[in-house]
Design a protein around this nucleic acid. Sequence first.
DNA 1: CCAGACGTTGTT
DNA 2: GTCTGG
DNA 3: CCAGACGTTGTT
DNA 4: GTCTGG
Length: 256
Amino acid sequence: MCGRYVMARALGDLVADAGAVEPKESLELRESWNVAPTADVPIVLERTEGDQPVREIHVARWGLVPPWAKDVSVGSRTFNARSETVTEKPTFRAAVKARRCAVPVDGYYEWLKPGPGAPKSAKKRPFYIRPQDGRPIYFAGLYEWWKDGSLTEDDPGRWLLSCTILTGPSPEADSGDDTLDQLHGLHDRLPLPMDRETMDSWLEPQKLASAEAAGHLVDQVREQANGTASAWVLDEVGTAVGNVRNNGPELIEPIV
DNA sequence: CCAGACGTTGTT
DNA sequence: GTCTGG
DNA sequence: CCAGACGTTGTT
DNA sequence: GTCTGG
């Protein structure tokens, strides 16, 4: 799964790597080595301008807030969406048909739980997972718009953009690939990364936003995920990342 | 009909 | 134990 | 995801 | 908004 990650890349690098247009307004983006749910994060989306798709970077709150929510608090538990059920769940099914995005990360954290035979004193051990080549990972994601209901004379209400990251099953054991085997041992869920071709399909705004078409795209994402994940590297890191108030490049330094 | 949920993870 | 906040 | 709180009344 | 449970 993915509940904490790193996005410390300069916006210009991200724009170039994602093939997005230069943002018209400056985005409120800060580098972070400890991105947690509810944080503002960059996302990549395509919208149709005239009849041309335009790829853009936007800033969204991590944790999808559906349009009918009474407040944003639901977003603190919707930072992941299970790919197996995303087309059915009331919270996600509208977004998966029409509001797909990519969530770029430099790498993400995963906590290894002590096994059942471990001593009582054993603690969770954080690992940092990143691509070998240093380019961003683009996780399959969804975005949604939510209108703040607090209407006053001066404030007609604001629109909040929010997002979530899709997960799938982790690679099977004994895959024959070292990295996939390590991912298997670390956790039973995997945030779903996209290769370039899949990302192009995923982001493309569909004319008929049917549930069936969305289901096929989700299947495609799940099927190619391990191919992308096999080019990752895992390193154990210090426990400081657990506290969201800690932030800095030292959080991703491998220990021992 | 209305009221209340709408989610993920992991653990037992 | 469970929920909220970051 | 983890860390940290988890409550009320009344008084300063 | 839409579905489920009562």
